[in-house]
């Protein structure tokens, strides 16, 4: 095993134990590991951004074509203005770059949500109902019902009743109640998945510790 890999394994082993010490309770070892992780991860990300994005862009500027050079410099200049956000007096300089980022991001999200989720999923919900077979009818019906009722749960339009209380429409209220059942089942399954992922991470960590110990012990 190369030295760098051995050292990495030892460090990883120790840091894993440090983090696991949190199971006993919060302690300095856990904090040490977490702060170290945040620092390394941030430095790693900064290095990647500077090296792979900004410097790479700067190096790839077409110096021979003024038009393309200007076009290529604009995002870099806008990016540079974002640094002004660190200084309150001139933080307004970064608003232009943020405006471009937000405007493009909003439009991209709109286009993606509309064409990638709303229309296809609505179609899928309807198409799931297959009257030609019982399973298709029941399964598709349940699927459609679940989709509609889940959406109905997030329908918060209501009217004020005669007694002054604000209530949703009775039909919407019933649909919303059914939607809550679907949502509860969905979140239960999601929770099971989260737990499985966490347990898998625990298994992976324990496995790495065991492999390291076995490699140390020569087993």
């Amino acid at each position: 095993m190369p030295l760098i890999e051995f050292v990495s394994a030892i460090v990883g082993f120790v840091l894993t134990l440090m983090v696991f010490s949190y199971l006993i309770g919060d302690n300095p070892l856990f904090r040490f590991a977490v702060y170290l992780f945040v620092g390394v991860a941030s430095g790693y990300a900064a290095a990647v951004i500077v090296n792979d994005i900004l410097l790479a862009r700067l190096q790839s500027l077409p110096l021979g074509d003024p038009a393309l050079l200007v076009i290529g410099l604009i995002p870099l200049l806008l990016a540079a203005t974002l640094l002004a956000k660190l200084f309150p007096r001139i933080s307004w300089l970064g608003n232009f770059a943020m405006a471009v980022l937000v405007g493009v991001g909003a439009a991209t999200a709109i286009g993606g949500a509309l064409t990638g989720t709303l229309i296809p999923q609505a179609e899928a919900a309807v198409d799931a109902v297959d009257p030609r077979s019982l399973t298709g009818l029941v399964g598709g019906g349940v699927m459609l019902l679940g989709t509609v009722t889940t959406l109905a749960y997030f329908q918060f339009g209501a009217k004020r009743a005669a007694d002054g209380t604000v209530k949703r429409n009775a039909a919407v209220e019933a649909l919303a109640w059914v939607g809550r059942v679907f949502i509860a089942v969905t979140l239960g399954v999601v929770f099971a998945g989260v737990y499985t992922a966490a347990l898998t991470a625990l298994i992976e960590r324990l496995n790495s510790l065991i492999l390291f110990l076995k490699s140390i012990l020569g087993l």
Partner: peptide, 9 residues
């Protein structure tokens, strides 16, 4: 979801 949407779009 973003990737699926953008691939669709």
């Amino acid at each position: 979801r973003t990737w699926i949407e953008q691939l669709e779009a």
